[in-house]
Design a protein around this nucleic acid. Structure first.
Lengths: 340, 340
DNA sequence: TTGTAAGCGTTATCAA
DNA sequence: TTGATAACGCTTACAA
């Protein structure tokens, strides 16, 4: 227990109490082996008695770093975000780093604002979930990007390291699953015309279709990743005379909308139609019928991303390539054998 | 555009280029009015030409603060968390602060770990979503708590400022709504025996029952806030001969479980039973039937909490009392008139 | 209105 | 093995 000292103890207080110089105290802490056993002991007890904790600001100023990572996310409310954040946070904390959150809401000006953490040195590295490089960090820009890892949504036209699920492989798996259930008319509901992720998943879907002996048609319907767009896509579909028997949706949200629309029209899922989603958001198992989907290894994605970022920060040589993690097929109740 | 300078420009670079002292540069930035128009201009252009950005570490060291707030949350995955975080983050950013995330997972040792941000001066203030004071900051502890605001879950036995929804009033409203629909046998499914929030909501429920002319019975069933516990509570109920006609659930998760159990037994909601939740989590409107519930003003809670914390940090005199925000009744489809 | 200089609390170099 | 001491980059009296 320390006296009711007003100000926190400094290294000097410790030095005084231990009867050594501040240099020795610093050494005793950072390079114990370079200090005599006896003095080290004196220092240790002095530290305990003063309740000393090194002032991070002073340390960081001196060492020119902050041990802080900025995470730029387009939407904290995205159902995938918490899981990824947990992973990021977990390894950051384990490795002595702090995680600074920046919610950009997709607004460029806000992104700019957050970049100040980097330019002022409050953060050492950057995790980008936004899918694009902030203009303040663009190649030609005065202050270029610091150590960066992109996550969840690859950044086009850059060579930044990326960590995410293997969208193509996972989507192929989902499609093949539908095929294996006997479906031959399978629709893909996209996540928006220009969406990178959506295109990747569409590619996987095409690959899946290609695996089938029978020639299967590419049946792409535009959505935008929202539940509402899933609903709308189904509505548009019912104007036509021919219908798919199964839906592979860009994400779970869309799938939920699709199921809702189908049921509203009196159809049963999975008896009349099969629908499979992507993400395995927390509520996927709570809807009726429980959603069959592809699980994104969110926490793992976060962990790997942070590990790679910190490796770079700590100068450990690191590859700059993309790291695609395996997504699992989670079979629940929304898919069934095709009606013949 | 600056030269391809290796190291970021310092205040000294600016001073040199502008032909003034570093003190003047500092002044020109922080107290422009105390600097001659002409020199201020020279400084401004010099800053632009060098691409100077003040080193936050140096500033913070000198000014003995960090402009950083630590947010300690028991679970990032909690459906209420993102909304609150958005609010916290929004005003923090607007006021020039950064938000540091600490996911404690309910683990005390982890909490300890995060307190290092406070003790080392990396963070100036603390937002507590955990519902309890970290032991490292306990009253008797060597290093007591810095400026703190508790959020979402009041911390017992402390006088820390609190911001959250008015659980009692909102629960009363929910109960009265059920009563107004003609329900007379209303069950409350709790969030766990010792849970503060659950007890508050139970109290509101009792208050609501008391408003009714007819004497209504307190019918409390134990749950734990999980969907599963809602399911289980219903199952236990069906052993009895008399049943409630409506359920007021501790939270939406529980309500979802209740509805699932009811439907599994072949009952219809809201025709046969009414169920109302609490929180209005994002998926409340996506389940079938869409959930009637109490909406927590999550973002607003976060905003108010951060505002109050920063007010304290910046020495603006602030009240230390609790701030209870109004929760709205969101009427959707899960409640209907009582069967007579 | 401007400059000089004393810190802020560390780390790390260089002698002793 | 230890101790002076010079940075790290900034803010802010105090003088000029």
């Amino acid at each position: 227990m320390s006296e009711p000292s007003k100000k926190p103890a400094t290294i000097e207080d410790v030095a005084k109490l231990a009867g050594v110089s501040i240099a020795t105290v610093s050494r005793a802490i950072r390079n114990p082996e370079k200090v005599a056993e006896s003095t080290r002991k004196k220092v240790t007890t002095a530290i305990a008695r003063t309740g000393y904790t090194a002032n991070a600001m002073a340390q960081n100023l001196r060492m020119r770093r902050s041990k802080m990572v900025l995470v730029l996310a387009p939407s904290i409310a995205d159902p995938n975000f918490p899981g990824i954040l947990i992973g990021l946070e977990k390894v950051a904390n384990a490795r002595g780093y702090g995680v600074l959150i920046g919610n950009t809401d997709g607004a460029i000006p806000l992104e700019e604002t957050y970049m100040r953490f980097l330019s002022t040195g409050m953060a050492d590295g950057l995790i980008l979930l936004t899918g694009h490089v902030p203009v303040a960090g663009q190649p030609g820009s005065p202050n270029s990007l610091p150590a960066t890892v992109t996550v969840g949504r690859p950044v086009e036209a850059t060579t930044l390291p990326y960590v995410g699920v293997d969208d193509v492989a996972a989507s192929k798996m989902a499609t093949e699953y539908l095929v294996s259930l006997g479906h031959r008319r399978i629709a893909y509901i996209s996540g928006g015309p220009g969406d990178v992720l959506s295109d990747l998943r569409h590619q996987g879907y095409l690959n899946g279709l290609a695996e089938c002996a029978a020639p299967l048609q590419d049946w792409r319907l535009e959505g935008d990743g929202s539940s509402e767009s899933g609903r709308a896509a189904v509505e548009r579909l019912f104007i036509k005379d021919t219908l798919p028997t199964a839906f592979f949706c860009f994400n779970d949200n869309t799938a939920i909308g699709v199921i809702a629309a189908l049921r509203l029209r009196g159809y049963r899922v999975p008896q009349d139609f099969s629908v499979i989603g992507f993400d395995d958001i927390p509520f996927a198992s709570n809807i009726t019928p429980a959603l069959t989907t592809i699980r994104q290894p969110r926490s793992q994605i976060g962990e790997r991303a942070m590990d790679r970022l910190l490796d770079r920060l700590e100068a450990t040589p690191t590859a700059t390539d993309a790291e695609l993690l395996h997504g699992d097929l989670v079979v629940r109740e929304s898919c069934g054998p095709a009606q013949t």
